[in-house]
Amino acid sequence: MSPGDEHDSFGGVGGSGQTRTRLPEGNSGDFHGSARRPARGSRSLLAVVGVVVLLVTAIAFANRGGGEPATTAGPTSDRPGRATPTTATGVRPVTGKNGQIPTGHTQNTQGAQSAATNYAVALGSVDMFQRGPRTDIVRATHDPAVTDALLKRLDASYTADFLTSIGLDANGLAPSGLTFVSRTVPVGAKVRDHTATTATVDVWCTGLVGLAGTGSTKPVTSTWFTLTQKLTWVGGDWRISSSSQTEGPTPVNGDNRASVADEIAEAVEEYGGFTYAR
């Protein structure tokens, strides 16, 4: 079963009410885009699967069950639903790292937002398509109580056949001359509810996924989604206990000219990602 197949079944697990995403047919062409934008329903399989990487974390936990965290009202500035700008608040940003993933988030709503946002970036990265790096990411971002079961499910999903179907080799690497792109870019975050040791955080994101370079038949495309992470305070930091994803909010496409594949490949290689802290 591929990650895409698991995602399609996730919508019906345990009556969870999560959304179901159908995987559309792939696109073709040598360019990142064209003057004529494809219909929304014909987004490439690769684009959807890349974003679904973030959803796979939810699948294992949906079958495990578990209750909702209790809601505890905090100070006025921390109450769920109250909009706050993504700016510095005076609390020192995280300074530690577990590999490439920030650690040491503060035990408050600000720290929960930073953790959820940083984890969204890691779980939407190219490294999730390679077994060794994927294991490191999952162990660095998730509650140890759930990591082993999740890793087994992920390893069973990212088979050589599946990776080949999206243009990668059996090790999750792009063909020579092409650059595999998988990036999640957070736009904002909000806390839905929290206690001293639990939090539910929504992270609104846009994603870039595809193969960039001359001759690519799976051009880099973008999508919008909201990732909801349930976090637990364990081992001195926030860790994911479960997650889910819904489509949008999606803005109207602008009139920007789509870049050719080589321009996208060059940009991905030259522009690094960010560590997010509120």
Rank of each mutant, 00 (worst) to 15 (best):
L151R: 15
D148Q: 14
Y158C: 03
A196T: 14
T214N: 07
G207N: 08
N171E: 15
T214Q: 04
G167W: 12
L154D: 09
T197R: 06
S216H: 07
L150A: 12
D161G: 11
T200N: 02
L211T: 10
V191W: 14
T200P: 02
S182T: 06
G215P: 04
S176G: 07
S176L: 11
K218L: 12
G210V: 02
Y158N: 08
V203F: 05
C205W: 03
P186R: 10
P175M: 01
V203P: 02
G215V: 04
T164G: 15
V209F: 04
L163C: 12
T197G: 01
A156S: 15
S176D: 13
R192V: 14
S157D: 11
V201D: 01
R183Y: 14
A170G: 11
A170S: 15
L173R: 15
D202L: 10
A196E: 13
G188I: 00
G167K: 03
T221A: 15
F162G: 01
A149M: 07
L168N: 09
A156Y: 05
I166Y: 05
V201N: 02
L168T: 10
D155G: 05
P175Y: 05
L163P: 13
Y158P: 00
D161E: 15
V181G: 10
L211P: 10
S222G: 12
P186W: 08
P186Q: 14
G210K: 08
G167E: 03
G172F: 07
P219Q: 05
L163Y: 14
G188K: 06
P219W: 06
G172L: 05
D169E: 10
C205F: 02
V201R: 07
G215Q: 03
A160F: 06
V201W: 12
R183E: 09
